[in-house]
Design a protein around this nucleic acid. Structure first.
Length: 247
DNA sequence: AAAGCCGCCAACCGCTCCTCG
DNA sequence: GCGAGGAGCGGTTGGCGGCTT
């Protein structure tokens, strides 16, 4: 008995999407919202597998998708996050507004994977590398830590990813986590690094912004737009902090 | 100019996780 | 508690375009 295919192979179109198919899919999602991918196929009149529709929407048709080259800041961020999280592309993408997991994965495999990093060689497949290197050991230690904790707020991370923006959502508000509580839980190690990273950073107040860029000394109030604009730099600073914390 | 090679990226596949009855 | 179906994720593939010979 073979594995049951996710959708009937018969009558299901494969390969590149046409502009007409894109329009059908975009129109349907605009009217009915995301989700129900398996039934979408019939209702939208598309001869595509639900998984294929979902992928097309998330990676191409979704609003706020950022097109074009990865910037230097984004590359730095990807490298740092990959160092912390490993191949958890969806989580990494969730922290880089407008970029999809597929895009980041492709970028990593085609660019960064081959790129020798100064004093920090990152293999394409870390698991295949011997861990004689102390840095590798540290990374695997961190990965162990990550793999041993339950998902804290992954749904938020995913919704953030699927929205492709830094806007807040109802589910996030339900968490009602103040930046101070969040930081203190992380600082006192009641919250694991993985849990911390799975939390929605975009909803953080000026206090959190101050914390992650240099402790409580920052008193400059930050407007939401400023937070968004400065998000990459803040997160980069935070990952430095988190790396120290892991040691 | 044409054939072969190579890299990039969109899309597919199979697995795991989650939700619901 | 269990099983089925749906959703999501990461690895892999194949087609296309650009470059080289």
């Amino acid at each position: 008995m073979g594995r049951r295919p996710c959708c009937s192979k018969e009558g299901v179109k494969k390969g590149p999407w046409t502009a007409q198919e894109d329009k059908l899919l975009a129109d349907y999602i605009r009217d009915h919202g995301e989700g129900k991918w398996s039934s979408l196929q019939k209702q939208a009149g598309l001869k595509r597998c639900g998984k294929s529709c979902r992928l097309r929407w998330l990676n191409y048709l979704r609003p706020n998708i950022k097109r074009g080259n990865i910037t230097q800041d984004e590359e730095d961020l990807i490298i740092r996050l990959h160092k912390l999280l490993g191949n958890r592309w969806s989580l990494i993408a969730g922290r880089i507004p407008g970029r999809t997991d597929n895009e980041i994965k492709n970028y990593w495999n085609t660019n960064l994977c081959k790129k020798p990093l100064p004093n920090n060689f990152v293999p394409c497949r870390p698991s295949e590398e011997a861990s004689s290197d102390p840095q590798q050991e540290q990374q695997s230690k961190a990965e162990d830590k990550l793999s041993n904790v339950p998902k804290y707020n992954n749904q938020n991370a995913e919704s953030e990813s699927s929205e492709g923006s830094l806007s807040s959502s109802a589910t996030r508000e339900e968490e009602d986590y103040s930046s101070h509580d969040l930081w203190m839980n992380f600082y006192t190690r009641e919250m694991s690094l993985s849990q911390f990273l799975d939390t929605d950073f975009s909803n953080m107040s000026n206090l959190f912004a101050g914390v992650i860029v240099g402790g409580y000394s920052s008193t400059k109030p930050m407007h939401d737009d400023d937070v968004e604009a400065d998000f990459g730099a803040q997160l980069a600073a935070f990952t430095d902090l988190a790396e120290e914390w892991i040691m």
